[in-house]
């Protein structure tokens, strides 16, 4: 009787962690520009082009990619459990749409506003990502409100609310797209297709802390997530307060998604693909699936970002295009497999 034990946990997570570290380093070494690594490492803080490429241009974005890839994957896992649907993905909650809309509005109406951090000591951040996060919060509250019945978030209503909300947001964004000028349209593309371009270690550190906290909190609910995939009734009968779990998981994943989209725009398909691939490799037990997906998501996005920088060099493709390029066909394959697996009724 094969069972999840400590050995398997350590082995799988250890291997993935090693792969993640390797991917981060490799993505910082490789890119459209040839890097003299020795030069870069010799004097990391100097104004040497190699050092600046490695430490200032590449490393922050690679680290951000690892965090966001991991965060998106984890949100995908828990949302699939919450909605009882293996085809669910973070985009479905409407939160990412709201964040994009908030960011786009910020871009149009106050692109130059800055907010000093820690009284100016830690620099300044643009108001636009804050506007995006605000959009995410508002979306979350609206979808929550529309899906809450008798203290329970019914998966069916959640899905429906999220999808309808997304369509509405998409229409608004298309409208804005038709009235913005050429330069703002470029900014719009950032929100819709994502980009990991950043040099701010402060942002990267903040996002890492935020996502790791969210991940740990959700990981602790691993057993309950297993049970809720048995069906809501079965989960209740097996000892889970499903109402509370649904509300908590919805809020936690919405907050994570909101923050991620605020920083890097909408990067889709990770939350759909990675959970599935990892289920095939490590099984459906969430106690292992969650950390494994977190690490695998980070690995995937690191490489996707490298590809985004290399494929059409010197231009940088929005990384969401790379993930969609892999994700689209993958999604079709999933549908095909689901259709074959279900017995004819």
């Amino acid at each position: 009787m094969k069972v999840l034990d400590r050995r398997k946990m350590l082995l799988v997570n250890g291997a993935l962690l090693a792969l993640l570290l390797l991917s981060v380093i490799a993505s910082a070494i490789f890119g459209p520009v040839r890097l003299d690594l020795a030069e870069a490492l010799r004097s990391p803080f100097s104004a040497d082009p190699n050092a600046e490429i490695f430490f200032r241009a590449r490393l922050p974005r690679v680290l951000l990619g690892a965090a966001i890839g991991g965060g998106m994957a984890v949100c995908g896992v828990v949302l699939q459990a919450l909605l009882g649907n293996p085809l669910a993905c973070p985009q479905m909650l409407g939160v990412s749409g709201g964040a994009s809309l908030g960011g786009i509005l910020g871009l149009i109406f106050f692109p130059h506003w800055l907010l000093p951090v820690a009284g100016g000591l830690l620099g300044e951040i643009s108001w636009t990502p804050l506007a995006a996060f605000l959009g995410a919060l508002i979306s979350m509250m609206l979808v929550y409100r529309f899906s809450l019945f008798h203290g329970r978030l019914h998966p069916y209503h959640l899905l429906l609310s999220g999808v309808i909300f997304n369509s509405f947001i998409a229409a608004l964004i298309m409208f804005l797209n038709s009235i913005v000028d050429f330069y703002q349209a470029q900014g719009l593309l950032f929100w819709l297709m994502g980009s990991l371009s950043t040099r701010a270690y402060l942002t990267v550190a903040f996002i890492w802390a935020y996502i790791v906290c969210g991940f740990l909190w959700l990981w602790a609910k691993g057993v309950s997530l297993n049970l809720i995939t048995m069906g809501e009734e079965a989960a209740l009968q097996l000892g889970v307060e499903t109402g509370a779990l649904q509300r908590q998981v919805f809020v936690a994943s919405s907050l994570m998604i909101g923050a991620m989209v605020s920083v890097s725009g909408m990067i889709g398909f990770i939350g759909l693909m990675i959970p599935h691939v990892m289920r095939l490799i490590v099984g459906s037990d969430h106690r292992l699936l969650l950390p494994a997906s977190f690490l695998a998501g980070g690995i995937f996005l690191c490489w996707a970002d490298t590809l985004a920088r290399v494929v059409l060099a010197p231009a940088e493709l929005p990384v969401g295009i790379i993930t969609a390029f892999f994700g689209g066909p993958f999604f079709l394959y999933l549908l095909y497999r689901e259709g074959r697996r279900k017995p004819a009724l």
Binding site: P32, V33, E52, A57
Partner: peptide, 8 residues
């Protein structure tokens, strides 16, 4: 879109 590394 030009990535920062290319500009450097």
């Amino acid at each position: 879109n030009l990535p920062d590394e290319l500009i450097v």
